[in-house]
C-alpha cells in the first residue's frame, strides 16, 4: 500500500502506523462517563469507505486522517488530522 502524505509525498506503508477510526471526537471535560465510554470503546465496523488515523512516524510525524475503503484498500483522501479529534476542553 502507498500513502500520499500531504507533507512528504507518496510513501510506502511501512513508514506509517495505523491507529483506527477517526470519527470519535474526544468529549469535553465535563462529559458524562457514558459519553467518554462511547468515545473510548464504541467503533463502527465499516465495510467500505472509513476515515482512519494514521501516523507518519517514519517521516514527518504528522497524524493523518485517511479515508480508506476497507474492502479494496483504495485511499480516497489524505489530510492532516490536526484538530480532528478535538472538542473544546476546559483549560
Amino acid at each position: 500500500m502507498r500513502i500520499v502524505c500531504p507533507f512528504c509525498g507518496e510513501r510506502e506503508l511501512g513508514e506509517f502506523t495505523y491507529l483506527g477510526d477517526a470519527k470519535p471526537v474526544r468529549p469535553a471535560a465535563g462529559a458524562s462517563e457514558d459519553e467518554v465510554f462511547d468515545y473510548v470503546y464504541l467503533r463502527d465496523n465499516i465495510a467500505g469507505a472509513m476515515s482512519e488515523y494514521w501516523y507518519h512516524g517514519g517521516g514527518c510525524r504528522a497524524w493523518l486522517k485517511i479515508t480508506r475503503n476497507t474492502l479494496t484498500h483504495e485511499i480516497s483522501s489524505v489530510e492532516p488530522a490536526a484538530g480532528v479529534g478535538a472538542r473544546q476542553v476546559a483549560r
Binding site: 491507529l19 512516524g57 510525524r61 504528522a62 497524524w63 488530522a81 490536526a82 476542553v89
Partner: peptide, 18 residues
C-alpha cells in the same frame, strides 16, 4: 520511548490543536 512520542503527538496534533 517510541509509543509515548507517538501518543503525545496524537494529543498535540489531533486532540489539543489550540
Amino acid at each position: 520511548a517510541g509509543p509515548v512520542m507517538q501518543h503525545l503527538e496524537f494529543c498535540r496534533q489531533v486532540l489539543f490543536p489550540e
